[in-house]
Design a protein around this nucleic acid. Sequence first.
DNA 1: ATAAAAGTGTGATTTTTATCACATTTTTCA
DNA 2: TGAAAAATGTGATAAAAATCACACTTTTAT
Lengths: 238, 238
Amino acid sequence: MTAITLDRNINQNTFHLSDKTLTALTEIMYEQHVEAGTYLFWEGDTADKLFYIKEGNVKLIKGTSDGKEYILNMFDKGDLFGELSSFMNINYSYNAMALTDCVIGVIQQKDLEILLWQHGEIAVEFLKWTSLLNQITQSKLRDLTFHGKLGALCSTLIRMANSYGEKHDNGIRITKKVKNGELGEYIGATRESVNRMLSDLRGKEILGQEKGFLYIYDIDALKDICHCENCPLEICRM
Amino acid sequence: MTAITLDRNINQNTFHLSDKTLTALTEIMYEQHVEAGTYLFWEGDTADKLFYIKEGNVKLIKGTSDGKEYILNMFDKGDLFGELSSFMNINYSYNAMALTDCVIGVIQQKDLEILLWQHGEIAVEFLKWTSLLNQITQSKLRDLTFHGKLGALCSTLIRMANSYGEKHDNGIRITKKVKNGELGEYIGATRESVNRMLSDLRGKEILGQEKGFLYIYDIDALKDICHCENCPLEICRM
DNA sequence: ATAAAAGTGTGATTTTTATCACATTTTTCA
DNA sequence: TGAAAAATGTGATAAAAATCACACTTTTAT
């Protein structure tokens, strides 16, 4: 439920571990290939591993009793995610689905623990990482809870701009295609509501859409709607 | 924004650091007295300290441009909270207000860092702590976002039962008084909405109220409403 | 003990969001 | 490339939640 970018060449906004840590991690991970549409792990599996995405996209989803699904997180090439809680032998409370074919580096919790135990400085680095992740989650909680569904949507669009956006003529192009339904599952709204809100924003020329890609023309308008605090980019991300 | 209970005699549900870690921490903290209603720190202050509550209650609140306030967290005697992110010299994005007169143990980020650097095993323990906190926040995000305001309220009542509840005749007594408005600020709803929802629940004899204290008579009904996943008690807390 | 302040309860109304139903557009893949 | 599947757009309606207004109750502090 936590992610970090290891690869220095992508997601420039995100926090990075040092080269030393990076190398040490690479040494204790093993590779796993996961096909698009299949699952990396399921709800209930023992949460004793970390996953580093060498290639591909993964989303963490939670199914509910009434058949709905919620997207908890979306991770990309270079991200590291998982739980660090062997001490209480916790289980995952969600499913991890590969959105594309993925190459994953798997790190056993207990191997990592030995590494951290021996290298205090690496542990401190990890600690700062989890602390940052906490701030990310906390900021999402605020954005998704306190300004209605429109606020939740707008803040999510801003996060997408930061995570997957690229400068374009007079706006920002979101390089990752997202379905209305997925946005809904992310913010806890229905597909129809998302659709209508997006239409409105398009009508006001705050957003645009071309060939299935979203464009943000007026990010300040989005910021107004969700009472954006202009958090550092490390925190304001998907 | 993160908390843990250090004192083994209270909040039995929560994760504890080992005695060794506890002792080491006590050695590097200094004491600060804070009066009820005053602030421990303000939004914008450099986030370079951790705070251990020796005595009292603290709430973390965020004010918005339009004059509203949101409660991000509430901490009690024995809790440890703060951010661990000196590396990027981050600032608090919220205010910490003492609800009662407090005695606080203050730990300087850099002192802690030295401690962790030298003792890998303490660092690993801290890492597990932050990881747990992440799960707590993540579970709150789910509860507050995905089942409407009534779901958000019910899950909050369950969390309160776990954090401040005591067994009573035929139900659970919430030993901490909370105002309707505060509940609203916690879940992102208006005081009136909270009031009406509580009235409904009282009408259905799911809740009760006596001398200003809330009683939960039918916690399973609450669980149904918020699609409770029966998370471990370490996670399902305020 | 009592007046002022803070908090609660509730009706009437509006706004937001979900639900249902179905036409239209886009994507997928055989 | 064309049929099937998936996703989008939108109207009508219902349900959830916010807003405003004000009476009533509890708490606080002198």
